[in-house]
């Protein structure tokens, strides 16, 4: 896909945004440096892009995160450096936004500048195996709430349907129809379908725009 300067990952709580944001930034590192990941999560204190700091640094990706992120302080703070995302136009920025409408609320300060520059892709991460987004209609409802809170229109779908470590190629294949239905209902294109590295090989050629994921481990 032709890369915009800013890519935002939004979605339902626990849909896999952080993992995808980190993988996506690592993939962009060679293609379009300099790359930065901005952790804007004000909802979940546990699973954060900071957990992947070593991998990001090794790939030359800058992490913009609150000093409290990944610490034991349950403080919904935004990083002061986050304005680099909109101020520094040389940067390729990946935004890891918190879950649901509550998480998208944190975008508010950046939204006017993102819309004005208009060089962004806002991708909604969906997983049909999550209980509150099991049907296309339920998924769409969550996406509308996120748009309403964050103010950035969603421009595409990332189908991240998975059952964690138990995911089989059949599970991913069975999600394609769901993603297409979300796409049809919303009028948004499915930009990619993700597959964890273990099942990626057996799915290549069977699903368009397949994107391989390396599971980022929780550290600490």
């Amino acid at each position: 896909m032709k890369t915009k300067r800013i890519t935002l990952f939004v979605g339902h709580y626990g849909s896999g945004k952080t993992n995808i944001a980190v993988n996506y930034a690592l993939a962009l590192a060679k293609e379009r440096p300099p790359v930065a990941v901005a952790d804007l999560d004000i909802v979940n204190p546990y699973f954060r892009s900071k957990d992947s700091l070593a991998d990001l640094e090794a790939a030359g990706v800058r992490l913009i995160a609150s000093p409290y992120a990944g610490g034991n302080l349950d403080l919904p703070a935004l990083p002061q450096e986050m304005y680099a995302v909109t101020d520094d136009k040389t940067l390729t920025a990946v935004l890891d936004v918190g879950g649901d409408d509550r998480g998208a609320l944190a975008l508010g300060r950046l939204t006017p500048a993102i819309l004005e520059e208009n060089d962004f892709e806002c991708l909604a991460v969906v997983n049909r195996y999550r209980p509150l987004t099991g049907t296309p209609a339920e998924t769409l409802e969550v996406l509308r709430e996120i748009e309403g809170a964050g103010g950035v229109p969603i421009t595409g779908i990332v189908n991240n349907s998975n059952l964690g470590r138990e995911t089989t190629p059949a599970d991913v294949l069975a999600s394609v129809e769901y993603a297409e239905e979300v796409s049809r209902l919303s009028g948004l294109p499915v930009k990619m379908t993700t597959a964890e590295r273990g099942v990626y090989a057996s799915l290549t050629g069977k699903i368009p725009d397949l994107f391989p994921l390396d599971l980022q481990k929780k550290i600490g």
């Binding site: 626990g14 999550r130 209980p131 998975n162 059952l163 138990e166």
Partner: peptide, 16 residues
């Protein structure tokens, strides 16, 4: 195929 969903422990408590 048995129908499974991916849940957090906390969510599983609430749904159950």
């Amino acid at each position: 195929m048995e129908k499974k969903v991916l849940m957090k422990g906390n969510e599983a408590i609430a749904e159950a």
